[in-house]
Simulated assay, not measured.
Amino acid sequence: MAESRARRRPERREEPLSRERIVEAAIELLDAEGEGGLTFRALARRLATGPGAIYWHVTGKDELLGAATDAVVTGTMTAAAEGTTPQEAVRALAVGVFDAIDAHPWIGTQLARAPAQSPLLRVFEHLGRQVQALGVPHAAQFTAASALLNYILGVGGQNAANARDHQPGTTRTEFLGEVSASWANLDPDEYAFTRGVAEQLRDHDDREEFLAGIDLILAGITGTAGITGIAARP
């Protein structure tokens, strides 16, 4: 009888539970359910274990969110290839973070929520080193790196929010077409510029526009007048 009951027991996980596996499962759950769906009960079900076993590796949800964010962000921090310019290194990091937020929309919120924690500091440090490599005076380096960081997080987060705000069953092309049409029908005196770029909105590529913005910021950073103006400010 005991042997029969043993054979009917549900299968348990075969791999040993580790912090890395917990973080991996948390990322999967966050991607599927969002931050609200990340509970230790749901995570325990996914890992076929008990909540107590998870608490052995992480102390609570905040630590788990930080570890999940750090794991995703670390994946964007690839070493620059030999011969890579500072501009190319910034672009590579920027698009890496942009793609990470696009694939994991909860990342943007976590990065903005805890600016003093390591995931965001990794990005800021990398940007700052490239700003230094561009020869930006020390007095202007914080402003230059901050401008890049804020643009990356702001546009990346907005792109992810726009994707979530699409009406169910509506494609991105259809959504942009509807917004573009509404812009084209705005009052021609009050919204002359917006009407004029309505067609560009319909046809634009989010990723390409994002990188074009990075290039504009880099051009300002490396411009002598821009650097002098920032550095001279009291």
Score class of each variant (00 low, 15 high):
Met1Tyr: 11
Met1Trp: 11
Ala6Ile: 11
Arg13Ile: 07
Ser18Leu: 10
Glu24Leu: 08
Ala25Met: 09
Ala26Asn: 05
Leu30Gly: 00
Asp31Ala: 10
Ala32Gly: 06
Ala32Arg: 13
Glu35Trp: 02
Glu35His: 05
Arg41Met: 07
Ala44Ile: 02
Leu47Val: 05
Gly52Glu: 11
Gly52Ala: 14
Ala53Asp: 09
Ile54Asp: 00
Tyr55Arg: 07
Trp56Met: 14
Glu63Pro: 01
Ala67Gly: 09
Ala68Ile: 01
Val73Met: 03
Val73Phe: 02
Val73Thr: 01
Gly75Cys: 06
Thr78Asp: 15
Ala81Val: 09
Gly83Trp: 04
Thr84Gly: 09
Val90Gly: 01
Ala92Leu: 05
Leu93Ala: 03
Phe98Asn: 03
Asp99Ile: 00
Asp99Glu: 14
Asp99Val: 02
Leu111Cys: 09
Arg113Glu: 15
Pro115Glu: 03
Gln117Ser: 13
Gln117Glu: 15
Ser118Gly: 10
Pro119Cys: 05
Leu121Asp: 03
Arg122Pro: 01
Val123His: 03
Phe124Gly: 04
His126Met: 07
Leu127Phe: 14
Gly128Asn: 13
Gln130Lys: 06
Val131Asn: 01
Gln132Cys: 07
Ala133Lys: 04
Ala133Asp: 14
Val136Ser: 02
Ala139Val: 05
Ala140Asp: 02
Thr143Asn: 12
Ala147Arg: 08
Ile152Tyr: 00
Gly154Tyr: 03
Ala160Ile: 00
Ala160Ser: 10
Asp165Arg: 11
His166Pro: 00
Gln167Gly: 09
Pro168Tyr: 03
Thr173Lys: 13
Leu176Thr: 00
Ala184Arg: 07
Leu186Asp: 13
Pro188Tyr: 09
Tyr191Gln: 10
Thr194Cys: 08
Thr194Lys: 05
Glu199Val: 06
Leu201Ala: 08
Asp205Asn: 13
Arg207Phe: 09
Arg207Met: 12
Phe210Glu: 04
Ala212Gln: 13
Gly213Pro: 02
Ile217Cys: 10
Leu218Cys: 07
Ala219Gln: 15
Gly220Leu: 11
Ile221Thr: 03
Gly223Lys: 10
Gly223Pro: 00
Gly223Met: 12
Gly223Gln: 13
Gly226Tyr: 04
Thr228Glu: 15
Ile230Trp: 07
Ile230Met: 12
Ile230Glu: 11
Ile230Tyr: 05
Ala232Met: 14
Arg233Phe: 14
